[in-house]
Amino acid sequence: MADKVFALPNVQTPSVPVKINPDKCIGCNTCVETCQIDVFIPNPKKGAPPIILHAEECWYCGCCATDCPTPGAMEFNWPLPLKPRWRNKETGVVSQLK
């Protein structure tokens, strides 16, 4: 099943406002309940990571990632155009969030 290619509409931008690590996520759905926008829905499989359904409605409040009780389960992911840049004052080297 994993190799099957489905006919899908374009993936919405931003593709993933948050990244969920399936090895760490305990499927507690705290993020589903925390998100005021309902960006997520619970996974039909109990204990499995939630599904990002309305990615493009995210307002980047960060509450899901801040309130996730499981370290490393959810990583916030700024869309490319929004990734902040900063400079080391002494060396002048400019970095950008990955």
Partner: peptide
């Protein structure tokens, strides 16, 4: 992981 199409791929529906 966590996207809609991830789910689709894994579940088939």
């Amino acid at each position: 992981m966590g996207t809609w199409h991830d789910y689709l791929k894994a579940a088939g529906t």
